[in-house]
Amino acid sequence: MRSPRGRAGRHDGQHLHPGLARPTILGEHHGPAGLQLSSGAGDRFAGLDISTAGSGSVFLSDPCAWFDCTLEAEHPAGDHVIALLRIDDCGTSGSVSPLVVHASRFRRLDALPSRTHER
């Protein structure tokens, strides 16, 4: 993703810029934002509620989980680049369920009923 403020650590279409990145696990309520961010058209961050960490990394507000990372290395992989990130800090909301994409659709994770094991 390209940072709306051009900060280091964001994808420029080819490689991450040296510096910081903040991968985010979006919450169920981020469905429309997930669609907007995954599109290749226009300013993908337009109108989204974003925040900036003290490190300068940009992320969507109220995520399920976040990781403040430093880019360690990039490795070519065909028409992709694998980014190796060092996690410097991380956190979870504890109250936000993750946005799950499966078979090109958003899905919910439901809790499994508790089971008792007889011995």
Rank of each mutant, 00 (worst) to 15 (best):
residue 81 V to I: 14
residue 56 G to I: 07
residue 40 G to I: 10
residue 72 E to A: 15
residue 94 G to P: 10
residue 43 D to R: 00
residue 95 S to M: 09
residue 36 Q to T: 14
residue 93 S to H: 09
residue 52 T to Q: 11
residue 100 V to N: 13
residue 87 I to W: 12
residue 88 D to P: 00
residue 62 D to A: 14
residue 66 W to M: 00
residue 85 L to F: 02
residue 103 A to D: 15
residue 98 P to H: 00
residue 46 A to Y: 06
residue 76 P to W: 05
residue 93 S to G: 06
residue 50 I to M: 01
residue 43 D to V: 04
residue 102 H to M: 08
residue 98 P to I: 11
residue 52 T to L: 07
residue 63 P to A: 01
residue 52 T to V: 04
residue 67 F to W: 12
residue 50 I to H: 12
residue 46 A to W: 06
residue 85 L to M: 07
residue 53 A to Q: 11
residue 74 E to M: 04
residue 58 V to S: 03
residue 74 E to T: 12
residue 51 S to D: 14
residue 94 G to T: 15
residue 59 F to N: 07
residue 56 G to T: 06
residue 72 E to N: 08
residue 51 S to Y: 15
residue 102 H to G: 13
residue 86 R to T: 15
residue 53 A to R: 09
residue 43 D to L: 02
residue 83 A to V: 06
residue 46 A to T: 09
residue 52 T to K: 00
residue 44 R to G: 01
residue 54 G to I: 05
residue 73 A to Q: 12
residue 91 G to W: 07
residue 78 G to H: 02
residue 93 S to K: 02
residue 36 Q to H: 06
residue 69 C to R: 05
residue 62 D to C: 01
residue 97 S to E: 08
residue 39 S to N: 13
residue 55 S to L: 09
residue 68 D to E: 15
residue 83 A to W: 11
residue 83 A to F: 05
residue 96 V to E: 10
residue 47 G to M: 10
residue 89 D to W: 11
residue 94 G to M: 11
residue 45 F to L: 04
residue 95 S to V: 15
residue 97 S to I: 02
residue 49 D to W: 08
residue 90 C to R: 15
